[in-house]
Amino acid sequence: MSYQDFLQTYAARILNGTAVTAAQFLFASGVAILAALIAGLGKLSANPLIRGPAVVYIEIFRGTSLLVQLYWIFFVLPLFGLTLPKFAAGFLSVGMNVGAYGAELVRGAIQAVPRGQWEAALALNMTPATRMRRVILPQAFLLMLPPWGNLIIELLKGTALVSLISVADLMFQAKQINASTYLSAQSFGTALIVYYILARFVVTPFMRWLERVMAQRLGRT
């Protein structure tokens, strides 16, 4: 079977898998950004009741493997009465895992906003919430975008693990095609190339574009 024949036969399944991977990626990114913001801000809180859970979340999710977390959420949580469909278990695990790393980026970026900005907001009699929303976070956002670019690629790669709880993503389809045809180089090779294209020509350019747009909006071109 030539590679062309292979593509003709299996292109539909590979594209289906790519769509599922894209969906997992988008949902997981949403979870990761939300978790990172909450935990990152929480870790900076003066209240130990808020800081404690944030630190515990960050250390647990950074200290263990994504695969362990995925299996735990999918196989063990149901024993506590919380059964998640595999699609949701997939993107929640990936998102929570990357969110823990993101929380450190959020915390670092907020602390890197110059002191003068905090003092100015205080002098203008802004409430802490307004100060965070209008002054600190927009500047912190710009500071943390470049490292988030790397993290988002890690997230895309992380979504490949959801195939292990049989979410029918790109990796899953590659495995299935390999199991029925034994054309390992073709099936896994094609999947590798698709992941590469997604990372290098879709996600990375988008993050660069976002960096430019945000810099312009803050008047720093």
Binding site: I153, K157, A160, A174, N178, S184, L192, Y195, A199
Partner: peptide
Amino acid sequence: RSTPLVLQIFFVFYV
């Protein structure tokens, strides 16, 4: 760096 490790493991093992 931009492709999943788990896929690379499968690739090396099966190819």
